[in-house]
Design a protein around this nucleic acid. Structure first.
Lengths: 202, 202
DNA sequence: GATAATGATATAGTAAAATATATCAACAGA
DNA sequence: TCTGTTGATATATTTTACTATATCATTATC
């Protein structure tokens, strides 16, 4: 409806997709129900500012009021810092999927083992945390590599070193992401009021 | 309440005051009731985006969603284009008051005259329109000068030239403002859905 | 001192968002 | 084919913004 709010809705959707989040994931991060996100993105509601801010924060966006005559300059800034080119959204999606796949694989493997090595739990937490970062192509490669390492352990449960290898890869990935030295900064992972998981490590 | 929306509220109030608008004036321009504006500025409500946009437009602001990491750059842009230094708010206030004073003076003068010169009506319309611009120090000077000219006419109703002088000063002021060649652009005066006054002239 | 403008509040009624749940079709993978 | 994910919708309930209107204390202006 609202001609002016339509733009907001589009921005939200684009931001979400570019980060590879599903509406349900975003719902978890922002504490806004998925159904409501759907309505918002399709412009079916005149949402309240608090809802908008909740979503924005989860998407690493900031709601600002800028003077009309500065809008072009602002847009130019935003544009130059945007995702390098195209395909980013798809890569983010794939990276997130790969993470989930690995997570699932591990959890399916766990019950079978009499006593799982310590590293397995760590691996799981690491994956858990990585899901909070915005990922892209290069990260996808690292994740796949870690996934590969775990498969080696899967096929030979004596090879604990493979787990260690996998874990170390993900840790290093997490550190690069957290320190923002290479890719998108994202120094602070978005954290909902109710914590979905505890993650804290070095 | 809303920690995040508090910032929005402050921005709105600052923008309004810096333009010398009262809540009632802003209410007229934005079609948002004064009482509601009060609640919004004091952070008593979690307003809807449509209301926020209405107010923003009336204040010549744009609601935008920008990536977190661009916020500092954006703020810097906004800051460099802001009112040169201080006292702007007070000057705007004074300029608006001066206009009102002149308007009042004229309307009080009118009934007394058997047949007011054409220029008086033009003067009134000119003032009417000028009230839609954001004014500052230099405009204040021009307005006072026009006011002075009118007083000469007041003391000597035969001196129609004084009115012409006053009118010409305001017209020139209006043109400079409208074309944005000198001060703040403001090419399009904010116009509420229901028109409060008709003003159209060259 | 009287009058007018300003901003903050209060109350009551209406409209609409927010929420919790659930369902559904389309599609992707195992 | 079966399963899980995704996005869109539907319904019912609760909460709350929005509106209109009025009051009030505080400043300014005459």
């Amino acid at each position: 409806m609202g001609y002016a709010t339509e733009h907001i809705a589009k921005t939200l959707r684009k931001a979400r997709e570019s980060k590879g989040f599903s509406q349900r994931e975003l719902s978890a991060k922002s504490a806004v129900p998925q159904g409501h996100i759907s309505k918002i993105e399709t412009g079916a509601v005149d949402l309240r500012v608090s809802s908008l801010v909740q979503l924005a924060r989860a998407l690493d966006l900031e709601l600002t009021l800028v003077p009309r005559n500065t809008v072009p300059a602002v847009q130019s800034i935003v544009r130059t810092r945007e995702p390098p080119s195209s395909g980013r959204s798809e890569e983010a999606r794939l990276a997130q999927k790969e993470l989930k796949r690995l997570q699932k694989t591990i959890s399916r493997f766990l019950p079978g083992t009499g006593q799982a090595p310590n590293e397995l739990a760590q691996l799981q937490r690491q994956i858990q945390e990585l899901q909070h970062f915005q990922l892209s192509g290069s990260e996808l490669a690292a994740i796949r590599s870690a996934s590969q390492a775990f498969k080696e352990y899967w096929s030979d449960p004596h090879n604990v070193n493979a787990v260690r290898e996998s874990l170390s890869q993900l840790k290093s990935l997490r550190n690069t992401l957290a320190h923002g030295s290479v890719h998108a900064p994202r120094s602070n992972t978005v954290r909902p009021a109710y914590s979905l998981d505890e993650d804290d490590n070095a």
